[in-house]
Design a protein around this nucleic acid. Structure first.
Lengths: 142, 142
DNA sequence: GTATCTGCAAAACATTTGCAATTCT
DNA sequence: AGAATTGCAAATGTTTTGCAGATAC
């Protein structure tokens, strides 16, 4: 059969971060790696349900929380109260369109100088995001 | 009596933005102006309840939404799904402590260059925030 | 066989909505 | 009176929790 863990390609990245692999975890990770437009829990859940018919939303939440704790994924919250997720790679910026809600990655690698005010603090993460109207939506206005 | 609108000092800022003043609105604005550590709806509501015993959380939500729409306040969401608010002044960065949850303003005025990738987009807002452990919390580790 | 992972149902929150009551002019 | 503001109660939507069942080693 070809549905077990043993037949899967287990991302080294997960192992490096100390994640014990399971079919569910690998699938969720692969989904995030393949869908870089920052899916919501709902989206991940609905799509994977086709491959994993017994999947529950709780498990998606649990897994993303686990991934987030060990640094495999980054949680993005911009304004609306629904978390979005991405595989944690080099710090980059985001652009969120206020109209269509899409969140785009910016290739620019963000490496800000640490403000003097943060001396004594331990800075673990830095984020930059822009908001406005994306090209598609602003074209539609014309 | 001294509890009506007529006895209050109405912030010019509200009028400029076209907000029709009311006791509730002025109080909420004053609270935000005086409490710059980015209070939540809950915090604003609980504190103002002492002065405005009939205040409802719905009104706090409505007012903040109104303020936000006209640009009087800015809504901040960093990770947890609870909105925080500040009076909208010049763009500045934030630092959120993962342990105690406090959000600090950074005096640094943020004026980023617009990434080339965003050509054709209408950028209306830019945000920068750092995350990690604040001085108090990291001192506690030693 | 024991520990871990998963899933269901219910609970916990934050936020929104509909509508009635109140207030302001 | 008429329009806008406020407040209650219920609905909505996301996320968390407790615990039982399944799975892996």
């Amino acid at each position: 059969m070809s549905s077990g863990l043993s037949s899967m390609n287990i991302p080294a990245y997960l192992l490096e971060k100390g994640i014990k692999p399971s079919v569910t975890r690998v699938k969720i990770f692969e989904y995030l790696a393949a869908h870089t437009l920052h899916p919501t829990v709902e989206e991940i859940y609905k799509e994977l349900l086709e491959e994993l018919p017994t999947l529950s939303k709780t498990t998606v939440y649990n897994t993303l929380k686990l991934f987030s704790e060990v640094g495999v994924v980054r949680t993005i919250m911009i304004d609306d109260n629904e978390a979005r997720f991405e595989v944690a790679v080099d710090s980059h910026g985001h652009f969120k369109c206020d109209r269509c809600g899409r969140i785009y990655d910016l290739d620019v690698i963000v490496q800000l100088e640490q403000p003097k005010e943060l001396e004594g603090c331990i800075v673990r993460e830095q984020n930059i995001y822009f908001k406005g109207l994306c090209k598609d939506c602003s074209d539609r206005d014309k």
